[in-house]
Each structure stands twice: as structure tokens, then as C-alpha cells.
Write a protein that binds this DNA or RNA. Structure first.
Lengths: 221, 221
DNA sequence: TGTACATCAGTGAACGCGCGTTCACTGATGTAC
DNA sequence: TGTACATCAGTGAACGCGCGTTCACTGATGTAC
């Protein structure tokens, strides 16, 4: 596999200095390259140029490192969604009802689009964040798993749906569990694009398909 | 983990008799219990009560066994979808346009419903069939991966969509890649139901959510 | 400002684990005569 | 119908791999005096 040179960052000092951060970064790189299964203590320490058990000064176990990496991945996903939201620009101060409706719908699309873009551009991190199949359900350290808005991916979706309700597009009785309905569509697309039959598609084709799925959500939610 | 007794089926004969089939069945059990990652040659042979390397008389490698297990899982998924289709009953011989439209739409719902039901009832096999994350893209032995109709899961979906076109519900220009749009929705739901936040839901809640997602597909495709 | 010392980050060696896979073997089976 | 024999399914032992984790250690650092 990835046979990294033994000591990629040769230390001059005996102490490393910031091993905790370095291990986390190595863990993120591993997840980026090979998904959550590729995150191992031995490979992370190897990349940092430190002996395997040195990791235990900073993480109690592998799963603690993995949890930290997952937080990072969730935050990165949130950022991707935020970036799409920011692309919408500021709302007009005095906006008509139609404008507010259009904006709320655009927000939901932006959230979905950011989600799928993240999956397509960072498949390894996406898997780490959202597709931890078979792994025991661990509690997420929610603190670090957010974007700049202070919201995590799930909250960003929720806020967009609240907007749709406020603006009168989404009937309040359909608000319950609406996250899951919308999420299903983009999550499924993301999965298929990553390892399924869509893997061979160009980014442009993926983008078009994303728009079609978002059309479906828009019409059907 | 699963510490199976060493020789669950003690042989009286030196030869096993049908080791190929026995190993496949053990592999399917392992996949059922723990997903594709739980399928190992050593555990499969252990369960059958045979020495590890005996497997090499029947499978060239682990990945060959895994491919066989995947075929089985795909066929099981197809069966689940077919069962939902069969639940629709026979079409009336002389049916009105409205009846044929309703039937075509019901068919798509049945396909989706069977897919999600399979994921919910057999998560390990579902993962083995459709969620092989990170695994190298291998060629599927298509032959065995089908239901009784002779169609695989993907073909069943395609046929349902063709029906919608024939009946005039789905505009022909939206037929291209429509599989992926519909598939995304149910696949995402299935994934979320298996390991995501929907894991704690009751089968009844999952069923209701499935109907909402299918409503969305029906309205939005 | 200089020295003794406690702290604790990183070392070195080793453990046990389960895995896939290879090798030379053995002994039950079915076939040829 | 009985016997010699080739076949080849399953055995026994071993390999090397990477993994997480534990142990007693060492030596750079920063603090107290």
C-alpha cells in the first residue's frame, strides 16, 4: 500500500512538540485516502515519525483517535454545505414573498449540493463522517463537529427545512422527520457516486444528477 | 465475538461431501451477521468444521468466496423486491388507462419498498450486496445474482421505470439515469436505517418513512 | 543567575491476536482390470 | 465379484503480515530553590 518513508519529518528535538495535533492530522490524511478503516495507530505514528505506543500519551485508544478524525470530517462536511449557502449571497432587505420562497428553496438545494460535493471531493472523509458501517455506535464529540456557523451538517439541514416551513412551502405536518426524507435522497446519491455504479461518472455528470435529485426533493418533499 | 464450537457438524466420513456449498452457506451466515468484513476463510472453515486451507480446494481465494456471497446477497435482494411486486396481484386483463397508470406507479413503489425492507431485515447481506465501501471494484458473477424472474435488483428497477414511460407518467426525456434518481432515495434511506440515526426506529416507523420517501419519488421523479 | 530535581513525552522491546496463504502429506473414494 | 491403483479432498504444520496494546525505560524540559 502506502509505504511512507519511516521518518518523513525528522525531528531535531527529542520531544515532538505537538504530537497530538500531528497524530490527528495524520489520522485525517489516512481517512482521506482510505476511509475510516485505513486509520490505524501504527500507520499514523509511522507517518509522524514516532514510535507506535507514543500515541498513547495523547489518545487513550484507536477509537478515540478515530472519533477525533470523525469530528474533523463532520466539520469539513458542514463547511462544504456552508460554502454553498454562502454562494447564495445576502438576502434583499425588503424581499417579496416570492423572493423569500425562492430563497428558502435555494437554501435546501444548497445544503444538499454541499453534501454531495463533499462526498464526491472527499470520499474518504465522507465515509468517515457518515458511512461508518458496522462500527459500534459511539457518542460523537459534538463540539468540534461543526462548521463556522456553529451548526453541524444535520442542523444545517434542519434550519433549511425550518425556513421552508416559515415561508409556507413545506406544510408543518410534514416537517416531522423531513430531515430523513431529504437526507435519504442526497445520502443515497452520495453513496452511489462514491462506490456504486456512478463512480465512473465525471464531476459534471455527477453535478447534473445531483440537480435532478434535488429537483425531486424540491418537488416531492 | 462469535465463538462457535470448533466442529458444529462432526463428520463421520473423512470427506465432507459438499464443502463448496457448506463454505458458501457459512460465508452467507457470516455476511448476514457482520457484513462483508466478517467474511473470512478461517471463520467459514471453522464453522464447517474443516481445516482452514481446505477452502482452497473450492475457492481460489477469499475474494472468490466473497464474490459468491455477494451474488447470493444480490439474489436475495432481488427476491425481496419480487415479493413486493407479486403482492400487487395480477393485472386486470382489460384495464383502463387510469388503472394501468396506477399499476405502473405501484410497481415502482413495490420495487423501492422491497429494497428498503431487505436492508432493514437483512442489514448484513444488504451491505454485502450494495455497500461494499472501499472494496476494489470487482466484476460480479451476474448469473447467480438474480431473483426468480431472472432479473437482478437493478433490472427490476429499470423495468418499473420503463413501465412508467410506457404508461405516460414518466416523460421519455427523463428516463435516462432515472434509475439513479430513484435509487438514490431508497438507497439513502436504507443506509440511514441501517447504521445511521434511524437505526433506533421501530420497523413500523421505518415503514412510514419509506412511504414518505416513496411519495417523494412518486411526485418528484 | 545557577543548580537539583520532578515531571512526563517519547523509546525499545515484546505480547498475543486473527488473518490469508503455501507446502508436503494421507487416506477415502471410485475406476480399470 | 474381487483387487490394484490413481485421484484428489481434506490434514497438519508453518510462514509472514499488520494490528492494538502493555511494560519498564530514558532523557529533555521546566520549575523550585
Amino acid at each position: 500500500m502506502t509505504n511512507q518513508p519511516v521518518s518523513p519529518t525528522p525531528r531535531s528535538t527529542y520531544r515532538h512538540g505537538d504530537l497530538h495535533r500531528a497524530l490527528l492530522e495524520a489520522g485525517v490524511s489516512l481517512a482521506r485516502e482510505g476511509g475510516p478503516g485505513a486509520v490505524t495507530l501504527r500507520e499514523a505514528t509511522r507517518r509522524v515519525g514516532v514510535v507506535p505506543n507514543a500515541a498513547y500519551r495523547h489518545f487513550a485508544s484507536l477509537s478515540e483517535l478515530l472519533a477525533a478524525v470523525r469530528s474533523y470530517a463532520l466539520a469539513a462536511a458542514a463547511r462544504s454545505m456552508e460554502i454553498q449557502l454562502e454562494g447564495l449571497g445576502e438576502p434583499a432587505t425588503k424581499s417579496s414573498k416570492a423572493e423569500r420562497v425562492a430563497r428558502a428553496r435555494a437554501r435546501l438545494r444548497a445544503v444538499g449540493s454541499g453534501y454531495v460535493r463533499f462526498a464526491a471531493s472527499e470520499p474518504g472523509l465522507f465515509q468517515t463522517a457518515f458511512a461508518t458501517v458496522g462500527a459500534p455506535r459511539e457518542t460523537l464529540p459534538e463540539s468540534a463537529a461543526r462548521g463556522r456557523s456553529g451548526l453541524g451538517p444535520y442542523q444545517l439541514l434542519g434550519a433549511a427545512l425550518d425556513d421552508l416551513v416559515a415561508v409556507g412551502v413545506l406544510p408543518i405536518e410534514r416537517r416531522t422527520h423531513a430531515e430523513y426524507v431529504a437526507w435519504s435522497a442526497v445520502h443515497g446519491l452520495a453513496m452511489l457516486a462514491m462506490n456504486g455504479p456512478l463512480h465512473a461518472m465525471t464531476p459534471r455528470q455527477i453535478e447534473q444528477l445531483t440537480q435532478r435529485v434535488l429537483d425531486m426533493v424540491d418537488r416531492g418533499i
